[in-house]
Every structure is written in structure tokens, then in C-alpha cells.
């Protein structure tokens, strides 16, 4: 019953037309709090992309080979969240061992990712739209890249905003939300290019 979309189309669509953050509102919490400087935005974006691809693949396999055959679909929320938490923990340990440099760059962001809605969101979208394995991989990769792109863009814009005269009541999250709104409008301009549902 998998929808008949070419994986590459799905990749483009999930980066631009249905950006996980700007169209589906997922991953807002860390998005707003981390987007203050470009360096950490980059680190977080990279970490989200990596974790997304790994957990989506794992969750797909678990869904297909464990939950559906055993008729335990209602347990999927708990299973998905455990898989995500465990993956993040494992990644943290592995990266710490293998590459201390990368750990310095990514390490502090990893725990934040467990509660990032985008990760769970991709797993749930993949389940509801019944993607195949390849489609899931490309969808997860695209969503991660889209999120990364959005947070980098916002961080860069925020740098400019810091120098701009913003009304007192609008400072802080208010102006950030307006900025995100304009970004979302720009991304809507891409729609019509590819459609995904």
C-alpha cells in the first residue's frame, strides 16, 4: 500500500515543499532556543539529521518485523520513543569514543534531540503514510536536511535582527515567530514543484 512516489522526489519534497518545521511545525522547541548563533545551529542541525536517518530506519524495521506481525501497533509510541532515546544514548557514547572533536561539536546537542518532536514526527508520518524502506530513508534524510537548512537560515537572520530596532514588546520569541512566518511563506513558494502526502 506504499504510496508511489520516487524516493528522490520525496527527498526534495521533504526539504522544500513540506519542510518538517515550516509546514508541519515539528521541532519548534529547540529550534527557537538554539537558533541564536550559527555555530550551534549547525551542530544541532547535523545531529538531528544523523539521528533522524538512523532512528527512522530502526523504527521502520521494528514496525514491519515486530509490531505489525505481533499485532502490537498500539505500543508504537512507547517503542518509537525508546528507540529514539536509546539511539541517542548509543550515539553519544560511540562519538565520544571514536572522535572527541566531533563529540565537542555535537555532544551537548544530543540529549536535546530525544525530546525533539521532529524525530518522533518523522517516525509517525512514516507509519501513517506506510512508506517503503527506501522511501523512509529518503524522507528522513530530507526532513533532517530541511530542518538543518531552516535552523541555519533562522540563525543567520537572527544575527541581523540583533542589530535592528525591534519594539520592546516584540523582542525575544515574538520577532522570532514573525521571522519563521516569513520563512514559511518563502518555502510555500516551492509548493507545486513536488507534491507529497
Amino acid at each position: 500500500m506504499a504510496p508511489d512516489i520516487h524516493p528522490l522526489m520525496l527527498l526534495v519534497a521533504s526539504i522544500f515543499t513540506s519542510n518538517i518545521l515550516l509546514a508541519n511545525f515539528l521541532g519548534m522547541c529547540s529550534f527557537i532556543s538554539i537558533s541564536k548563533d550559527i555555530k550551534s545551529a549547525n551542530g544541532l542541525g547535523m545531529a538531528v539529521t544523523v539521528v533522524l536517518v538512523i532512528t527512522a530506519a530502526l523504527n521502520w524495521a521494528i514496525l514491519k518485523y515486530v509490531l505489525i506481525p505481533l499485532d502490537l501497533l498500539y505500543l508504537r509510541y512507547i517503542v518509537f520513543i525508546i528507540v529514539i532515546a536509546a539511539t541517542v544514548q548509543m550515539l553519544e557514547m560511540i562519538i565520544d569514543r571514536v572522535s572527541p572533536g566531533l563529540y565537542m561539536a555535537l555532544g551537548i546537542f544530543l540529549p536535546l534531540i530525544t525530546v525533539n518532536c521532529a524525530i518522533l514526527g518523522v517516525a509517525l508520518f512514516m507509519e501513517i503514510r506506510s512508506y517503503t524502506f527506501t522511501q523512509t530513508l529518503f524522507f528522513a534524510l530530507g526532513s533532517g536536511l530541511g530542518w538543518w537548512l531552516a535552523i541555519m537560515a533562522l540563525a543567520a537572520i537572527q544575527k541581523k535582527i540583533q542589530k535592528a530596532p525591534v519594539p520592546a514588546g516584540l523582542q525575544g520569541p515574538g520577532i522570532v515567530l514573525f521571522t519563521i512566518g516569513f520563512m514559511a511563506m518563502a518555502f510555500i513558494g516551492f509548493s507545486g514543484m513536488v507534491n507529497v502526502q
Partner: peptide, 25 residues
């Protein structure tokens, strides 16, 4: 039509925050 689409949620949320923060200030 814009109200049905995603950006309006960000704008409204931002606007609401603006009003409330102004009142609080």
C-alpha cells in the same frame, strides 16, 4: 487562504506574544 496555511500560525502566535508582552511591560 493564508490563514489556512502554516505561516499564519506563526504570525498570529507572534502577534499574540507581542500584545501580551506589551501589556506585561
Amino acid at each position: 487562504t493564508i490563514m489556512v496555511m502554516a505561516p499564519s500560525a506563526f504570525f498570529l502566535m507572534g502577534g499574540l506574544l507581542w500584545i501580551i508582552k506589551t501589556i506585561m511591560l
